[in-house]
Design a protein around this nucleic acid. Structure first.
Lengths: 211, 211
DNA sequence: GGTAACATACCAATCGTTAGGTATGTTACA
DNA sequence: TGTAACATACCTAACGATTGGTATGTTACC
């Protein structure tokens, strides 16, 4: 007998259908933005029919909201929040996280979906905006918490304002991501990361030297 | 006799028609992005007809390119390049420029058009991308030139890399603009400006104190 | 058998674009 | 100077394609 995951594909598997739609919608939205994302393109990419899509999602908007909540938020969670909860020195962790952001040409050219959706949708759709804002706030809170821990452990300058520094880090990361996306050049991104790492190092106490 | 500019409006005034189309297109693109910008909306805003629009611009794309070249580039020029050519200490000039970026609720909520178009169009349309990249490069070069001047005058740290610092400034400005746009909150922008100004001050030589 | 999970066919609206015509302005020539 | 010839600057109507959405029908599974 075949292992469970290789069993003959069930004719009906609503969870899988929904997940495939979400994934395809994420890709399409990431490519074209939400407004220009085409339902037809999503259907073509998944071989799901209109009826099935509108069975799982009541409108294009709700599909978009689900993409933000379940796909975009997950990215931030996996790349930032989870690693930041690990052991180690705060600045080291942040440098590691920043360096682990995908830097392949494809990734850099595609850019950050959070950034794209913020620019496009936040003035147009309050429901979108609120969901994106939730992601930014969680991100900021995660960084600030880590910096606070660093301060209490003496590995971060005592005069640093954690919330302010967290915002600064996020702004810089997103700013360089924009420049690199516009340049369509992974080297631009890597140079940005080096600058950010340099700034992160400056958050250590003056008397705190490392190898 | 009436002054020249109040004379009865000429039935045909191609320059004025073109300029009005450009202005309305800029507004519409800034609001909706390029792909979702509606020709109908531009026509309605100007009371210009389809035929007139397609007389002045051969397609929606060329209209978009003209908006980037003649409207978006002008913004960067007026707000950054021109002030940066003035007299004075480099860091003071940069702080002044940054503080003079419009910070009304409407401006912050609308966001930076350069940012929006980069996010939306740079992976999709090389012609767009090149024109946007030109703006970013001019911007960067302007800041770098000013910082170089500051170094030679001893008002900027001698160990500073002008191009790197220029990129850092631009990335930070655009990053905070994104955060503020997503928050739809002018206070977020003003706080960002304060952080940027703080960073700019740190570019002065250690022994260089000011009032 | 009942209903959850689809599939199909179609709708009205909107998209950017163009064809075809008109009105106004300019220029060349008698 | 008058006007024929032409060019510029529009206007109107309609195009075919695509948009998101829905109503109705069918099928697989508990």
């Amino acid at each position: 007998m075949l292992p469970a995951h290789e069993k003959k594909r069930r004719a009906r598997d609503p969870e899988r259908t929904r997940e495939r739609l979400l994934q395809a919608a994420f890709r399409e939205i990431h490519r074209s933005g939400f407004q220009s994302a085409s339902i037809d393109a999503i259907l073509a990419a998944t071989n799901v029919t209109r009826g099935a899509l509108y069975y799982h999602f009541e409108s294009k908007e709700t599909l978009g909201y689900a993409v933000v909540e379940e796909k975009v938020a997950k990215l931030t969670h996996d790349r930032w929040l989870r690693p930041m909860r690990g052991e180690g020195e705060a600045i080291d962790i942040l440098i590691g996280v920043v360096r682990r952001i995908p830097d392949s040409p494809q990734d850099v050219r595609a850019g950050c979906p959070l950034l794209l959706l913020s620019q496009e949708m936040s003035p147009l759709d309050e429901q979108f905006r609120k969901r994106l804002e939730r992601i930014f706030l969680d991100w900021q809170e995660g960084v600030a918490t880590l910096l606070r821990r660093g301060k209490s452990q003496g590995t971060v300058r005592s005069d640093l304002n954690p919330n302010e520094a967290a915002r600064f880090l996020i702004a810089t990361v997103e700013g360089y991501a924009t420049l690199a996306k516009n340049a369509q050049d992974a080297k631009a991104w890597k140079a940005g990361i080096r600058s950010i790492v340099g700034w992160l190092r400056s958050l250590r106490p003056d008397n705190y030297k490392r190898g």
